[in-house]
Amino acid sequence: MTVHPIRRASAPADSALTLGIVDEGEDCPGVAPHPAIPLVGRHEFRWITESLGPGRVVEHTCGCAMTSYELISHAGVYQICRRTLPRAGVPALSWTAERWRRSDAYEWWHRLLSGRAR
């Protein structure tokens, strides 16, 4: 297992460095961070099945896990998209009901990566 420091070019200059813990198995390309295990007392996002419309993916987690996340910009308004393998009670594609401006969006993105939000 290797820890890779990752800083996205699109992240604000004052953003924290994200550590992606990568299991260098066959199925993991190791090119994106993996969200940490959710912490007790974490913030629970409210997930909905409708997005704000077409947007641009500015951050993403590794696609090797059952669930991956994308931070998406919709003309300056941000939303997190969750993609998961089909399973009972969880839609394969959903978005956060919350919407944020850039600085707040990166704060919530880092909370998701650190396990403080899900």
Rank of each mutant, 00 (worst) to 15 (best):
P38S: 02
A88Y: 11
S10M: 08
G89H: 07
V77F: 06
R111A: 11
L112C: 04
R102P: 00
P54M: 05
P5R: 13
P12D: 14
T67L: 02
D27G: 01
T18P: 01
W95R: 01
G63A: 12
G25N: 13
G30D: 07
S94Y: 00
P29G: 04
H4L: 15
A75Q: 14
D104K: 09
I21T: 15
E50N: 14
P91I: 07
A32W: 12
R102Y: 03
R111Q: 14
R83E: 06
E50M: 12
A9Y: 13
W108L: 00
G30Y: 07
R7F: 13
S114Q: 05
C81D: 01
A105G: 01
L112R: 03
T67P: 01
E24F: 07
I21M: 15
D104C: 02
W108V: 10
Y78H: 03
I37N: 11
M1S: 15
V3I: 15
T67V: 10
L52M: 12
G89P: 01
C28E: 11
E70Y: 02
G115H: 03
G41N: 09
D14V: 00
S94F: 02
L52S: 08
H74G: 13
A92V: 05
I37L: 08
R101P: 06
G41C: 04
V40S: 05
V58C: 11
C62A: 11
L93V: 05
W47D: 02
W47A: 02
T67H: 01
P86Y: 10
G20W: 09
L39W: 00
P12W: 06
R116Q: 14
Y78I: 02
Y106H: 12
E107T: 12
R116D: 12
E59M: 08
R83D: 07
E44R: 15
I72T: 14
I72A: 09
P12H: 09
S114N: 12
W109Q: 01
A11W: 15
T49E: 15
E24Y: 07
P91C: 07
A105N: 02
I37F: 05
S68C: 11
H34N: 09
D104V: 03
R102M: 04
G25K: 08
F45M: 04
R83A: 09
S114E: 09
Y78P: 01
P54I: 10
D23F: 14
S10H: 04
R111C: 03
V90E: 12
A9G: 13
C62I: 12
S10L: 09
V3T: 15
R116A: 13
G53H: 10
L17E: 15
W100T: 00
R118A: 03
T49P: 07
T96G: 02
S10A: 14
H60N: 15
R118F: 00
Y78C: 01
T61G: 04
I72F: 05
I21C: 14
I6E: 13
C28N: 12
S73R: 13
L71H: 03
T96I: 06
